[in-house]
Write a protein that binds this DNA or RNA. Structure first.
Lengths: 132, 132
DNA sequence: ATTGACATTCCTCCTACTGGAAGCCCCATC
DNA sequence: GATGGGGCTTCCAGTAGGAGGAATGTCAAT
């Protein structure tokens, strides 16, 4: 299976697969013409990566998860730990976005959005007057 | 006011201020010794940038907002439009995070997290068995 | 033999900075 | 006057996770 087929089968762009090889996440074989050759094992890793990235794991977390996946002496605690860290990151990010959203929504709804120049959004950014 | 004082007064790291000059967001004067010199107007822009970035506007949106801020013929609709786009981006991002969170939380709570190797998180990533 | 669709490598670009090195500048102290 | 400790300058490299594109090679079908 060459990179095009592996791309279709895994859902990852060929560019991304090459990148993953570059950083050592997968190690496809090579044919005599230089083409990458993916077997079932490699393809499974690509699918694994596609799902793990989709859930939001960083590439380095994916590397760790793949290593655990291959390590039959792993403990599920190790895996859970990584996942919980990710969950914490997501929660922090969501809180950050939420507070931005609140501020921004408040500003947006206070602005008329007409053809006059007066704008509480700019006023707030320029600290002219607090939007109460 | 040199860059160190401007940094303290605006809350932006000196490195960031230099970067903002680099990309043309601010244009401080220069003293004869080459030092940057920030007057009240420049400082206001730095503060403006600090707040706008804090709300989550991209640097390019900040550039547009600063331009509107200086344009006395602006319409508040232009400003509101930028802010609403940002709000939309935030909402999309939050939804993405929320769906990740749901998935991940489900996986995490299904994993024992003990010293045995069996792990539904890995199973799911490897598509061994759907988590319910 | 030629076309078109693949593949390869290599290089640059993206966001928004951050860190560090090498080298001035200024002020205070000895 | 020499020295020391900041702060300032510039420039270069690196971050995450690829995307885009150029130049070139290969394969299968016509």
């Amino acid at each position: 299976m060459n990179i095009g087929d592996a791309s279709k089968a895994s859902g990852l762009p060929a560019k991304t697969i090459r990148y993953y090889e570059d950083i050592g996440l997968v190690k496809p074989h090579r044919l005599e013409n230089g083409y990458r050759m993916f077997d079932g094992d490699q393809l499974n890793k690509l699918k694994f990566l596609q799902r793990a990235r989709g859930i939001g794991f960083t590439v380095e977390e994916c590397r760790a998860l793949l290593a655990l996946y291959e390590d039959k002496n792993r403990t599920s605690a190790d895996v859970k730990n990584i996942a919980q860290n990710r969950l914490g990151d997501i929660d922090r990010k969501m809180q950050e976005l939420q507070s931005m959203r609140t501020l921004l929504h408040h500003l947006v709804s206070s602005c008329q959005g007409d053809d006059r120049p007066d704008c509480p959004i700019l006023d707030d950014l320029a600290d002219v007057a607090p939007v109460h």
